[in-house]
């Protein structure tokens, strides 16, 4: 493992006893989302990140320093097992892959890892618009593609990673009815497409697994592939989630669980060790 456990230790809790650290009283929602995302990545996984991915890169580093010391992280699809001293202003630039053990010299090599289905099986997707079947849009807002209301940055790697068998983990720090919609204006990233068997019929493995927002965690009902509430963040109601969503979210029978609260140790790691400059807050417009 490339991360020094002593450097990661909180004053009150060593890396060895991260499990026993008590729930934090003063956590914030960015930290809650990071912890929820970090739990999706375990030893044996290989993770990589794209651009403006402050929450994923913080989550990977948190996982490495707690439950997943053998997680493989390919920073920016370039640097293997990096040891950045902070989260930098770009998640596709050199300071992120400081002290890596290897550079992937060109993206052609990265695609050799990514396309064959054996490696890098999970991928975190940030998209401006996400729909009830987990399709993502980062291209245009508006009904007419060539006369868009808003021209967004573009498909880039999302159009690839959605189609090549990856399990997709969406994060969205601003859960609102314009961001989580009934149907995306443009499918930049293939999710469950029209729902049901449509994705599988096209021969696509993988697919959307979870959506982690500032209000809740959602998964997808296995038959219809419709987005479904999985856990509520503390203090958030089902009604608040419904009001913030552009379609009716499925709600499973029985009590809805609460998203796990970050521990004091996790909060310490995020704030003071991994992301001391608070780059993650850029995703919240701060």
């Amino acid at each position: 493992m490339s991360v020094s456990p002593t450097a990661a230790a909180a004053p009150s809790a060593g890396a060895a006893d991260w499990r026993s650290s008590p729930p934090a009283n003063d956590y914030t929602v960015d930290e809650l989302m990071i912890v929820a995302l970090s739990e999706c990545f375990v030893d044996g996984d290989q993770a990589c990140n794209g651009m403006a991915s402050f929450i994923p890169v913080t989550a990977f580093q948190l996982a490495l320093r707690t439950h997943a010391p053998d997680l493989v992280w390919l920073a920016g699809a370039v640097g293997l097992d990096p040891q950045p001293d902070r989260v930098p202003a770009s998640t596709l630039e050199a300071p992120l892959w400081r002290n890596s053990v290897m550079y992937v010299e060109q993206y052609g090599d990265f695609w050799n890892f990514a396309l064959n289905g054996r490696w890098l099986q999970k991928f975190c997707v940030g998209a401006a618009q996400l729909d009830k079947f987990g399709n993502g849009n980062n291209s245009v807002i508006g009904a007419e593609y060539h006369k868009p209301r808003v021209r967004l940055p573009g498909t880039a790697g999302l159009g690839d990673m959605g189609s090549i068998g990856k399990q997709l983990y969406y994060w969205n720090p601003n859960h609102n009815p314009r961001a989580i919609v009934d149907r995306v204006d443009f499918v930049s990233c293939a999710g469950w497409l029209g729902g049901g068997d449509e994705r599988r019929a096209l021969g696509l493995a993988g697919g959307p697994e979870l959506v982690i927002t500032n209000l809740c965690v959602m998964d997808f009902e296995p038959t219809s592939r419709h987005m479904r509430l999985k856990s509520l963040h503390p203090g958030i109601s089902i009604e608040q989630v419904q009001a913030a969503t552009g379609f009716e979210v499925l709600v499973p029978d029985g009590a809805i669980g609460l998203t796990r609260v970050p521990t004091e140790h996790e909060v310490h790691l995020i704030r003071h060790v991994i992301d001391p400059d608070g780059m993650r807050l850029r995703e919240f417009g701060k």
Binding site: T155, D160, S163, F186, C189, A190, L202, L204
Partner: peptide, 13 residues
């Protein structure tokens, strides 16, 4: 050939 992009609206463009 590639499988990248399958299922997206990029193809129809």
């Amino acid at each position: 050939p590639t499988k990248a992009g399958l299922g997206t609206d990029v193809l129809a463009l």
